[in-house]
Simulated scan of single mutants.
Amino acid sequence: MSRLEKLRYILAQKELDVLVVSQPENRRYLSGFTGSAGWLIISNSIAYLAVDFRYVEQAKKEAPDFDVIHIKGDVVGWLPKFLLDFGIKKAGFEADQIPFATYEKLFKTINDDGYQLHLIPTSGLVESIRAVKEPEELKFITEAVELADAAFDQAKSILRPGMTEKEVAWGLEKFLREKGSQAVPFDIIVASGQNAALPHAKPSEQLLLKNVPVVIDLGARVNGYCSDLTRTFVIGDEDKTFFKIYDIVLGAQLTALATITAGINGDQADRLARTVIEQAKYGDAFGHGLGHGVGLETHESPRLGPNSSDLLVDGMVFTIEPGIYIAAWGGVRIEDTVVMENGKVRSLTRADKKANIC
């Protein structure tokens, strides 16, 4: 089935006449259109891409399977009448993409003008299709992973005490762009010493020192598809606390890599790694989920974490990234991008997991 056929099957199940798509990655996934603004209107019989003047020609080129229409003004001014012209009665919209104020205006316009149109909030319809990758998608993700691996190899060759976190982060971003990555999918994290205790630390003027943890979290982007890689290490070999924590986190990750199978859910996958950390008495220091899907977005379905019911199936690409974070000391996180194949996890990431750089 094509992507549109899969979506139309879901719309039939949900008893929706049409879905209005505005989420950027969903819009690109279904149509191929890469512009920053636009609306897809998809039913069992129509597929329209509505864009303003800036994108008309681009939309015609990138989305040949869609009828392109030129819109003016905000969505409140054109969408209700457009839907009614096609006899639409029940229109689904992406609830987490349309601001409540816009929804209120749409609702008021529909009521004031007497339109027999019902707006139905939806969530995750297109994302559920995107979660299982097609072969070409996996190819682009793999290429992005290879770029991230190469960047980490570059980091190991240039890191030295006295460099700042910002200096390292910029050097890695420059390397990735020069080697062919599109704009990096997220701000690169370089966090040393106590900063490594912050899972989403921002690079600072902090100097890299010997024998303190250094966390590097980076990704690349190829044809819109992302990768995500984290490694932690010390420059030197004299921090016994680091090696103790590192071994626990590595053990948790290797356990997850070896035991996650198709058919379990995100909560069960998380539990496989979390149990290792809890048994080592550091459960409270592992404050985030085990992983997340990777594709057109760095964070997408499925979610691997406590209370996640997302079912893991073949074709899904996601991260496995346990961590331990200790205030006033630092932290350790180890992250691979993996794919579920033949019921088992295969790591796409190849960067080594050596704990120190001497």
Rank of each mutant, 00 (worst) to 15 (best):
S36Q: 06
G180Q: 06
D314N: 15
F140C: 01
V338T: 10
G236N: 05
D96W: 12
F243D: 06
E297D: 05
F140R: 01
I277C: 05
R274G: 01
H288D: 07
L311M: 13
N223Y: 04
Y325K: 04
G224Q: 02
F66T: 02
G323I: 01
R346K: 15
L348W: 09
D270I: 00
K166Y: 10
V215N: 13
T230D: 04
G219Q: 12
E146A: 09
V190K: 09
G263Y: 14
P121M: 04
Q182R: 07
I235Y: 00
E278M: 04
S204H: 08
G289Y: 00
T102D: 12
V126R: 08
E165T: 09
L7C: 08
S227M: 07
D239V: 01
Q154Y: 15
Q97M: 15
E238P: 01
D67Y: 03
L4H: 09
Q253V: 03
E127H: 11
V51R: 06
G331M: 04
S43E: 02
L147K: 09
S301H: 09
M316T: 09
E205K: 10
L207I: 05
K202Y: 13
R130S: 02
R3I: 05
D112Y: 13
K240M: 06
I324R: 06
K281S: 03
E62S: 09
N44F: 10
Q58I: 14
S309G: 12
G266L: 11
L198C: 07
K166N: 13
H70Q: 07
I141H: 02
G124L: 02
S43T: 08
V222D: 02
A150W: 11
F86P: 00
E297C: 03
I10F: 06
D149F: 15
A196L: 11
V51D: 06
